[in-house]
Design a protein around this nucleic acid. Structure first.
Lengths: 328, 328
DNA sequence: TTGAAAGCGCTAACAC
DNA sequence: GTGTTAGCGCTTTCAA
């Protein structure tokens, strides 16, 4: 493997001149620069990232750590991160955070300068520990306070509030909330929004979600089956996310329960499939792209020593499709 | 930032002993080891990846470079890569390959040891150039021959052959192929399979796809509208991928053309949405997980100097759903 | 069992 | 404008 030393030798210059030729072209004679570039070309020289990073004590790379990579849901987020990163000359890598070594090799050993984290399965402890060691992290799925931590999220509570309010306006009184996992702050906030809307309408919501899934379609199926088997059918179902709503829809269809005529259905997230199912799914859209963009923006601020906004909340949008009746 | 030097000082040992304590515990006295570990703990020591990588001349990280990250289509692939990587002690990062710097920073500057590439927009030249410089790469979307290149793919041609054969068995004669972009080898192979099946059935396929999209849903919409406006409606449509099939389906529905009663529809890929649309989409499934796994397997072989299989082809599966009639 | 020292490849003072 | 030199933080000979 050719190193800068080899290039320098072949070009007949010193190592530092070769380095300058690459990094500060204006500071070497044009003729010398040419010789260096030619030598590099000829020797197929490629700089070694590790050496640069070691010297610079930074990598200009940030990591997006996700729990799972499925769904265009995340791709928008990543796009937002990416676009902002481009603007700021950062590179982005994405990794499965649940792999023991993603956090270890990338964050712990400083192979990236910072991270955007979206994975409720990573414990707060781990995140704080990293922040404690001055690794800048933007968390998208929790609300933590620390100088090296920034929390960015959609306004889950208000989004759920508006969605519930919509259902109430549509004339529903008996609206069932299909909750998410206990571990999810987002799910909790969505439930709160639902609850508040009901209270504001002088209805009496339960203290806790009557039904609870784990955000997967399968859990939506399971809970709906349980619902139909053991309880009175509600007028409307508000699932804490679209994946579960998909499961709900599937079971309702199986039981020949018409949506929205017999039971209305609302989801949360606006995943791509939401518009393809029949009936298409009304849902609450999170501004994923903006979330990603804002996350990277804050990260860059932190990395360049500027002051950051430790907590940013972005608005959601109610998307009405066919699984809920129109409100006149 | 605490370095190993600091740890050594605090523990009252030399740097080399501290290093040994971490990397070869058995080679230092237990008591010394404890002291080092304690010091490390106390100082919040974290090794610097760049320094390690520089020394080791390897990173034990491989990159998966994708053109876009949307779709659980890729998530399965990544899962396959990941599982195999875990087995072999490699880490995996995913990057958008179309970003100028993904290839530059990661591959060109050796920040990863190798890559799995799935992005037809990267030119063969770039790939070969990298391979030429001894960067091991597995390509999933092209067929290139080079000592540092391995090509792995699904059997697109045979998959399309079987799908077409199925349509023929279902009684169709006039089967229209909606082709993919010229740049896509996969699309070309699928067309070839389609063509061969027709020829084998003594039908006369066109030399080139009559309609051609760019693998996006929008292009499926566009081409189908063109089809309906300017040509005779075929008995069946075989779209070179599911995304385009989605577009086809959309337009057919708009025009009240029943699927499969009026026109049958076949896709390729088996993306997740395929089973959610109405009617659900018959398609050809690529073994994405296996593809990823095999890719990583070959990469690891190459990286450890073992001999590799320069070309691996995996079988596809025909998935019959509602957009094609059953064949008895 | 431990320490001294070299060097991975690169960049940037600093001197000429 | 160019060369000399000193590290960046780590691991690993090699000696003691």
């Amino acid at each position: 493997m050719a190193t800068i030393k080899d290039v320098a030798r072949v070009a007949g210059v010193s190592v530092s001149t070769a380095s300058l030729a690459f990094n500060h072209p204006s500071r070497v004679a044009e003729e010398t620069r040419q010789r260096v570039l030619e030598a590099a070309q000829q020797m197929q020289y490629r700089p070694t990232g590790a050496a640069r990073d070691l010297r610079a004590r930074r990598t200009d790379i940030i990591a997006v750590l996700l729990r799972d990579l499925s769904g265009p849901f995340y791709s928008e987020l990543i796009q937002g991160v990416q676009d902002e990163a481009d603007r700021c000359q950062y590179s982005v890598v994405i990794a499965h955070s649940n792999r023991r070594d993603a956090i270890g090799r990338l964050l712990y050993e400083n192979r990236v300068d910072g991270a955007v984290l979206l994975d409720p399965t990573i414990s707060d402890e781990v995140v704080i520990d990293l922040a404690e060691q001055n690794v800048p992290i933007v968390v998208l799925d929790r609300d933590l306070s620390h100088p090296y931590l920034m929390a960015i999220s959609a306004d889950h509570e208000n989004g759920a509030y508006e969605a519930t309010q919509y259902l109430i306006k549509a004339g529903y009184r008996d609206i069932l909330f299909l909750g998410g996992p206990h571990s999810s702050l987002d799910a909790e906030l969505r439930f709160r929004g639902y609850r508040r809307a009901l209270l504001d309408a002088h209805l009496t919501p339960p203290e806790r979600p009557v039904l609870r899934g784990d955000f997967t379609e399968a859990s939506g199926v399971r809970e709906t089956e349980r619902l139909l088997a053991t309880m009175k059918k509600p007028e409307a179902i508000f699932a804490a996310n679209d994946e579960m709503a998909l499961g709900v829809l599937h079971v309702l269809r199986q039981h020949h329960i018409r949506v929205p005529d017999d039971v209305a259905l609302m989801g949360f997230d606006d995943i791509r499939i939401a518009q393809y199912v029949v009936p298409s799914l009304s849902t609450v859209r999170q501004p994923m792209y903006e979330l990603g963009r804002e996350a990277m923006r804050q990260l860059v601020c932190k990395l360049s020593g500027k002051s950051v906004n430790p907590r940013v909340v972005l608005p959601t949008f109610l998307v009405i499709r066919e699984s809920t009746p129109p409100v006149v």
